[in-house]
Design a protein around this nucleic acid. Structure first.
Length: 477
RNA sequence: GGUCCCGUCGUCUAGCGGCCCAGGAUAUCGGGUUCUCAUCCCGGCGACAGGGGUUCGAAUCCCCUCGGGACUGCCA
């Protein structure tokens, strides 16, 4: 049995966006599922728009997502290969030099558009004589190499493993450029050569490449290469249902990472966009995904990237994350939010772990920690809200707080259960309800009437600080 | 304009001729749990784009219409 080989081939003209990430994920899952190989190929043949920082960014984001690759290539390292094949096609009379300038082409394109017809290159350089070519060269004109479309253009059928056979009655393209005037290959050409040379067995990419695939099939024929298999994924859309773009809000993996989403949350969410396990499961580990992934279950229709669901996923994963990891992840945000300065002692780390355990149910993204009410309870300053003040003015409050104060401050430490039992004692002593004890306690200790479980809060704060705060509240009331 | 893809709750989806006057998730709303918020649990609202066929029977098959999207570059 042959080894399955798939690839993810982004162009470094921007950060990795979620659409690309999903394509990468599906390819990666396919590779894992079939014990195959994943190739990462950077398509940086556009010298004007490609940036090194994006190449690095894409690699980092993929690694962060856990989508590792077995082989790595960048097309800018392979330019002589494309040039060699282009020359071969010229030699075989399957391609030719074209001397039309970009301005001339633009002008003709515009004219065609104005006439309401489809702008297609007219093939005027197809049969230039040697003299004409020489003349153009002497004029200093640059040339590109164009692929000569077969005269008898049959309908092209793309055998798509996801959508089924797709038939193109005619291709809305003329002789397209395969080698640009700067010597770099155009997308379709480089892509075909590399997919062949890298022995890609299955090309899975988004649907915006569908017509490209049809064109590429022509190149496979001309080059006499065997075709790989193809599969096209539906598009990821923005809330306005158009192709996901910058306008649609946050779209890059980098942004989501910076906002404090966990990679497993993003992976889980992306896996459910255009693929379904067909049962009612929502949460999937990566190993479950690799096990269950199948082309059969890929969905044809496009899907809107929905951030609310991602928030829910992230909350789910945040709640089950290891506390040590959570501390590491949260620290940058807490520092930026000025809750924490400098390095943490072992004790402070443990305390932070407890704090995070306590407040994580209210977290959608770690960025929420930049400014979080509950953090003020521990990293102060405390502010007394109006509602809390009301509670502190209840008739029963001063007796309650005095009772609590006496009992708390004689303790070395306070476990949540200790707080419960003390509250119970005070409640019974004063012959009142739990509410009359808990509420003032919360108000005194946190300055608020709502927040995380007060027993847990006090357990973390300890008897000293708790005592101080109760004392202060007593003085003020 | 041309070519191609797609069309089930706001969103992600289950459904591949009868189990569906359509199930789950999320969002939203209400209730419960809690000292309180969050979490959690329970419940409500909410969709087969429209029209023709085929069939005893259609969300499911066929056709048309409408709608959305992509491509149409010396970008990828």
């Amino acid at each position: 049995m042959k080894t399955e080989r798939v690839r993810f081939a982004p162009s470094p003209t921007g950060w990795l966006h979620v659409g690309g990430a999903r394509t990468a994920l599906f390819n990666w899952l396919y590779a894992k599922k079939h014990d195959g190989k994943m190739v990462l190929r950077i398509e940086d043949t556009d010298q004007k728009r490609s940036r090194e920082k994006y190449t690095e960014g894409i690699r980092e984001d993929l690694k962060w997502l856990g989508l590792n690759w077995d082989e790595y290539y960048r097309q800018s390292d392979r330019l002589e290969i494309y040039e060699r094949y282009a020359r071969r096609l010229v030699h075989e009379d399957k391609a030719y030099h074209c001397f039309c300038t970009e301005e001339e082409l633009e002008e003709r394109r515009q004219k065609a558009l104005d006439d309401g017809s489809t702008p297609i290159y007219d093939g005027r350089c197809r049969d230039l004589s040697e003299e004409q070519k020489q003349e153009y060269r002497e004029e200093g004109r640059d040339s590109v190499i164009r692929f000569k479309l077969p005269e008898q253009q049959p309908s092209v059928v793309v055998p798509d493993r996801i959508k089924g056979e797709i038939e193109f009655e005619s291709l809305t393209t003329g002789d397209f450029v395969i080698l640009k005037s700067d010597g770099t290959p155009s997308y379709n050409f480089a892509c075909v050569l590399d997919d062949h040379l890298m022995e890609i067995s299955f090309v899975m990419r988004a649907e915006d490449h569908l017509t490209n695939t049809a064109k590429q099939l022509l190149l496979y024929d001309a080059l006499e290469f065997d075709q790989p298999e193809f599969g096209h994924l539906s598009m990821l859309l923005g809330p306005d249902k158009s192709k996901l773009s910058k306008r649609s809000g946050a779209t890059s993996v980098k942004e989501f990472r910076e906002n404090g989403y966990l990679p497993e949350a993003l992976i889980n969410h992306l896996s459910q966009l255009g693929w379904s396990s067909k049962d009612q499961q929502e949460i999937f580990s990566v190993s479950e995904l690799t096990e269950k992934f199948s082309l059969e279950n890929i969905i044809d229709s496009p899907q809107v990237f929905n951030r609310e669901k991602l928030d829910w996923y992230n909350n789910q994963y945040l709640k089950q994350a290891e506390l040590d990891r959570l501390v590491e992840l949260a620290l940058p945000y807490l520092r930026q939010g000025n809750y924490i300065e400098g390095e943490l002692s072992e004790g402070e780390r443990e305390e932070l772990a407890e704090i995070l355990r306590l407040i994580r149910p209210s977290l959608d993204q770690l960025e929420d920690l930049l400014e979080h009410d509950d953090l003020n309870i521990f990293y102060g300053p405390l502010e007394l809200t109006e509602k809390a003040e009301d509670v502190l003015n209840w008739e029963t409050t001063s007796n309650v707080l005095n009772g609590l104060y006496e009992r708390f401050t004689t303790r070395e430490s306070l476990a949540p259960e200790d707080v419960s039992s003390i509250v119970k004692e005070v409640k019974e002593d004063n012959d009142i309800g739990y509410k009359e004890v808990y509420k003032p306690l919360r108000a005194a200790v946190t300055g608020k009437v709502s927040g995380p479980e007060i027993k847990e809060v006090i357990s973390i704060l300890g008897p000293d600080i708790t005592g101080e705060r109760i004392e202060k509240a007593l003085k003020n009331s």
